[in-house]
């Protein structure tokens, strides 16, 4: 990771402080440089709330901060999984959260005039399938992949449930926020040297990493 450059100012919007801590680590690895998070931190109350508050957050970051970009990561839960076919020009799947978040970014930023020395706040969107705990299990449990989840959904037999994933990561149904954060950080730090496994097993993460790498271009 380059230490010559000054830290990049970014904002992270996710579903819990534990997720946010883990995403910050992964974002720094993908960007290849240290990041400084916008304060106060952003937070949403689960999926519908992320989509609802996102336009206001983009607008706030654009006009009121010097943030270079916004990283948004949500769980897919049982929604439609983003597929390469969704990336076709002008395609939009109404039940895919990746497509929905990208559309919100597109529609919000196109109306905004330049501010704070930049055209727009850069976009980094990731969707954890079916939950971010699946990312934390990457490399520890080979059965847990986005492909396995998608294949299971096709035959209406998901290979695992979200509570099962959480239990595998935290060892309890009711982890404290402290435990959740510690184990999330421990899990993502295993990928600090190399994100390829995580990108391969979880295209919803690969999309985020691709977004972040494009920021330097």
């Amino acid at each position: 990771m380059s230490s010559a450059q000054p830290p990049l100012k970014i904002a992270i919007l996710s579903e819990s402080p534990a997720d946010e801590a883990a995403i910050a680590v992964l974002a720094e690895v993908a960007l290849g440089r240290q990041c400084q998070r916008v304060q106060p931190s952003l937070r949403a109350r689960g999926w519908p709330s992320v989509a609802q508050v996102l336009p206001a957050i983009i607008r706030h970051l654009h006009f009121n901060t010097d943030a270079a970009g916004l990283v948004v990561v949500v769980d897919s839960d049982n929604s439609v999984v983003h597929l390469p076919s969704h990336d076709a020009p002008d395609y939009f799947h109404p039940y895919c959260r990746m497509c929905q978040l990208r559309a919100v970014f597109r529609q919000t930023t196109k109306k905004l005039p330049p501010a704070n020395g930049r055209e727009r706040v850069l976009r980094g969107v990731g969707v954890a399938v079916p939950a971010i705990e699946a990312w934390y299990l990457c490399g520890r449990d080979e059965q847990v992949t986005e492909a396995a989840w998608t294949a299971g959904l096709e035959i209406d037999r998901p290979p695992y449930t979200r509570p099962q994933l959480k239990y595998r990561v935290y060892g309890t149904d009711r982890p404290s926020l402290y435990l959740e954060t510690q184990l999330a950080l421990e899990a993502v730090r295993r990928h600090q040297g190399d994100l390829r496994r995580l990108e391969n097993d979880f295209p919803g993460f690969a999309t985020l990493a691709k977004d972040l790498r494009s920021w330097g271009q």
């Binding site: 819990s16 402080p17 309890t172 149904d173 009711r174 982890p175 404290s176 926020l177 402290y178």
Partner: peptide, 16 residues
């Protein structure tokens, strides 16, 4: 969330 965790500590001591 921290308040909920504290109350869970009472109800589910083994997990804490």
């Amino acid at each position: 969330r921290d308040i909920r965790d504290l109350l869970y500590r009472l109800s589910y001591p083994a997990e804490a």
